[in-house]
Structure formats: C-alpha cells, structure tokens
C-alpha cells in the first residue's frame, strides 16, 4: 500500500469517503464526488493533494468549456499576428500550443491530483469526449504530431452538482461517492476544526438553529456547511452572545445575521411568514 489518505487537520472526512478516495488511488480510477452544495466536494481534491504531498491541477468547468480546453489549445490568431510582425517565434508551431490542465497533470514529474470541478456545468456530451483521455491517460496533439502520455496516472477527482445527468459510459469508468450532509456530531467536529476558540455553548446553540433551519419544509436552498461556517464567522465578529440564539420565541423566528444562511429572497419571505403566523397564533 503506497499512499493512504487519512483526512487532514482542517478537513473532517468520513470513513466512507476515506475508503472511496483510497480505492480510487489504489486502483487508479477517477473518483466522482457528488453531494449537496457546500459539503466540501472541491475542498476534497485540495486536501488530498495537500496531505499526500502531490501537486494539484485544477480545471474549473463552465458552460462553454470543451473537452479540448483541458488538453491544449492552439492559439492560431497569436501566431498569425506574430508572423505578420515578422517574429521568429511564429516559425515553430509549438510556441502557440497552450497546455491545458490535463496536459500539465500528465507531464507532472510526480503523481498529481487533477480536479475537474463541476463537470455538470458543461455541455451534456462533455464527459463522453473525455473517455479515452481518462481511461488511457493519453491524447494526441495533432499540430505537433505528438502523443502525450501520463508519466504517472494522476489521481482524478471530479465533482458534480447534479445539474445534468452524466452518461453511463463515463460513469462506468469512475468510482462514485455521495457526500452526505454531515450529522450533528460530524458538524461539531467541522466547526471545531474551523473555530477552535469558539465557546461551546455558542456552537451548540448555533448548530441547533442551523439544523432546525434545515428542517423547515419548502426551503429553496437549505443552508449548508460552508454557509454555517460563514455565519459563525459573522456571529463571532458581531459578538453575538449565545442567549440571543437560545431565544426560542417563535416571534423571532429569523435568527440574527440570517443573510449568511438564507441566500434566496423566497426563503427569507418564508421565514418571515412563519414568524408572522407564529405571532398571530400567540
């Protein structure tokens, strides 16, 4: 067993996820990670790279991203311009091949971590265009007549937010892990990792509010871990005492500094309505 990922001091990882990461490392398969937004999907790649001492290459996918962008791009316009100006560089096409993150990861001197972030943002056929590259870890550069082959198969971590379903052929080549929303206990540990100096009672009260808020039916976007962390930061800087949070009076259903937790005016409206109804009820 060469390398084992054990989680890090700043990143709390479940046993399930640990096993999934280690399986992907050992068997050299890409790991597809899904989960609610804010459960640390992107952080995973950064932490894996950090803890195993591997270089990290990030490829953030946008709706216009093409598979080719990950391999390389040929900047023909720049070459044409240089040729017009009589620049000698224009004689060699290699000067105008811009390497993409996949190429960089393949050429890395040591095994690297390659993050393909939010693959579901791209066109629906995008994953299919990467099958061979991810399978054989090689691709051909037509302009240079050169085959780029990975020196060390990079550890590939792919994240998805489920906006589009991914094709079967692609899924078959990946390992898959769904990061569940952390339970109370894990959340305690996560908060502890981020705010070691936080008072215990404030944490407990904040978590109480947070998990209650997630229970409210009909929320368009449930607050997630990253939002909880932001909110705690705000509470900390605003010096909000724990007993304000302990306020269980339904007339004050909206917690202080809620803007960090609720990101959607409909959700805020929902909470206001709940507060209003509670007022009328009493």
């Amino acid at each position: 067993m060469a390398m084992r990922f054990q989680g890090t001091e700043t990143y709390v990882v479940s046993d399930e996820l640990k096993l999934a990461v280690n399986a992907a490392i050992t068997l050299q398969r890409p790991l597809l990670v899904k989960g609610e937004p804010g459960t640390g999907k992107t952080m995973l790649a950064i932490e894996v790279a950090g803890s195993l001492g591997m270089p990290l290459f990030e490829w953030h996918i946008k709706s216009t991203t093409k598979a080719q962008h990950g391999l390389y791009e040929y900047d023909a316009v720049a070459r044409l311009r240089d040729a017009q100006l009589g620049d000698d560089r224009a004689a060699d096409i290699a000067n105008y091949i811009v390497r993409g993150p996949l190429w960089e990861a393949f050429e890395s001197d040591e095994q690297a971590v390659l993050l393909i972030d939010e693959i579901d943002k791209a066109d629906i056929e995008f994953p299919n265009d990467l099958l061979r590259e991810l399978d054989r870890m090689e691709f051909f550069v037509y302009e240079l007549k050169q085959l780029v082959k990975a020196r060390h198969r990079p550890m590939v971590i792919i994240t998805s937010n489920n906006e589009k379903e991914l094709p079967d052929a692609f899924l078959r080549r990946c390992f898959f892990h769904y990061i569940r929303f952390p339970d109370r206990e894990t959340m305690d540990r996560i908060v502890g990792v981020h705010f070691p100096q936080l008072k215990e009672d404030l944490v407990q009260e904040a978590l109480e509010v947070f998990f209650n808020m997630r229970e409210v039916p009909g929320l368009k976007k449930k607050p997630s871990t990253s939002e909880l962390i932001d909110w705690l930061k705000l509470l900390l800087s605003g010096d909000v005492p724990a007993d304000v949070l302990r306020e269980r009076d339904p007339r004050k259903a909206i917690p202080p500094l809620y803007g960090a937790l609720l990101k959607n005016e409909q959700d805020v409206a929902l909470f206001e309505r709940l507060a209003f109804m509670a007022r009328r009820g009493t």
Binding site: D15, E16, L19, A20, A23, A24, L32, K34, L166, L171, R172, C174, F175, F176, H177, Y178
Partner: peptide
C-alpha cells in the same frame, strides 16, 4: 459494503 458501493453504484 462501502467498497462495493463506491465501485458499482454511480447515483445516490
């Protein structure tokens, strides 16, 4: 169980 799920199941 975890290993089998990671490898075989691709959808939560």
């Amino acid at each position: 169980y975890l290993l089998a799920r990671t490898i075989m199941i691709k959808n939560e």
